[in-house]
Simulated scan of single mutants.
Amino acid sequence: MQELRGINVANAINEKILEDVKGLKGAIPHLAIIRVGERPDDMSYERGATKKMDKLGFRVTSFVYPNEITNEEFQKEFDKINEDEDIDGILLLRPLPKHLDEKAIENKINQMKDLDGISPANLAKVFAGDDTGMAPCTAEAVVEMLDFAGVDLKGKKVTIIGRSLVIGKPVAMLLLKKNATITMTHTKTVDMPKTCRDAEVLVAAAGVARMVDESYVGDGAVVIDVGINVDSEGNLCGDVDFDKVKEKASILTPVPGGVGSVTTSVLAKHLLKGAFLRRG
């Protein structure tokens, strides 16, 4: 079994970014991170994204607002960032507090600055197979890992656990563009383990700690674990029970150290793309 770690994939993406940024002729891409409140997972992702941008020599500015900010105030603050010509890309840490109108942000964000593919325009491009759009970073990180591992998806039976607009559905569209044969499972799927066992590539994005055991995995399957969970003992873990699945999988991603570590590199790749779209 090959353990497919994210660091190697991220390094390959970073090298390509450092080569491509020369095309901006000295301009430095500028990322805006917008965070409301002090959620630990948001703050962790913010730190990771900031560290990645610093490593690549990109600029990053964090806009942090109190949890109690009114919807009117927040919309005005977002408009300023969205319209700022010095900012090439926006990362909105979600979900927002319930009193804030997240849908309004999705509808108004400049699609060239929409690095995590939250706007209807970018999602439509992903579903249409239009490469000018930006897919959600985690969904694209899954594809980057499969490409890096040399998995030829043409005609492959791929099963995805989860149907969210953040991961499940966009991953399905990205892999369909590579001519994979897609099956999607969800909470209403009958006999999910059997459906998953038929897959040559299994993408787990259910958000349930260690849900996927050996009964879900066919012999020699490629298993990509997108889940980020905390178990009853406070340990970070994925949707896949690594120890139970490793004897059956041919390729398996760990958590932590797998897809999540590629996501910030995809974010940087999108920032560079946004800079080219706006400045090119």
Rank of each mutant, 00 (worst) to 15 (best):
D41R: 05
G218H: 10
V201N: 05
V266Y: 06
F63R: 03
V158R: 08
A12W: 00
D20R: 08
I105A: 02
P193M: 06
A205G: 08
K80Y: 04
T253E: 11
K169M: 12
D88Y: 06
D130G: 02
F242S: 00
R39D: 13
P193T: 04
P95F: 12
F148S: 10
V171K: 00
A104G: 01
S215E: 14
N14Y: 01
E144K: 10
R47N: 06
L4A: 00
V223C: 00
D198A: 14
I17Y: 00
K157F: 14
I90W: 05
E140R: 07
R94H: 12
I7C: 11
G280Q: 06
V142P: 06
R5C: 07
L146I: 02
D213W: 11
F127M: 15
T253P: 02
L174W: 06
L100M: 10
L96V: 03
M145F: 07
K98R: 15
S215G: 02
I105G: 03
G37P: 06
H186D: 12
A128H: 14
F58N: 01
K246H: 09
L176A: 11
T61Y: 13
K52F: 02
I81W: 08
P170S: 05
N235H: 14
L96W: 09
N107W: 02
M192N: 01
G280E: 10
I7D: 15
T181D: 07
F58A: 01
E46W: 07
D191N: 15
L165Y: 09
T70W: 11
I28E: 08
I251W: 11
A128L: 15
D84N: 15
K188F: 14
A49V: 09
N8K: 13
V158T: 14
A172M: 13
V64T: 08
Y65V: 00
N235T: 03
V64K: 12
A121E: 12
L165C: 01
I90H: 07
R278L: 07
G260P: 06
V158W: 13
T50W: 12
V151P: 01
Q111K: 15
V226I: 13
M192E: 14
E68N: 13
E3G: 00
L176E: 05
A32L: 02
T70K: 09
I251D: 08
K108E: 15
K22F: 10
K154H: 14
K273D: 10
E140V: 00
T253L: 04
T185E: 04
N82R: 06
P254Q: 09
F74D: 05
A139T: 11
A149N: 10
R59L: 07
L24P: 10
P40F: 07
K269F: 14
T61G: 09
D131A: 15
L123E: 04
F74T: 02
M145L: 13
N67K: 15
A209S: 14
L24R: 12
T253G: 02
C196L: 04
K76D: 13
L267F: 07
E68M: 03
T183L: 05
I7Q: 15
A104K: 12
K154E: 14
D243C: 00
H99P: 08
T138I: 06
G162F: 09
L165V: 07
P256D: 03
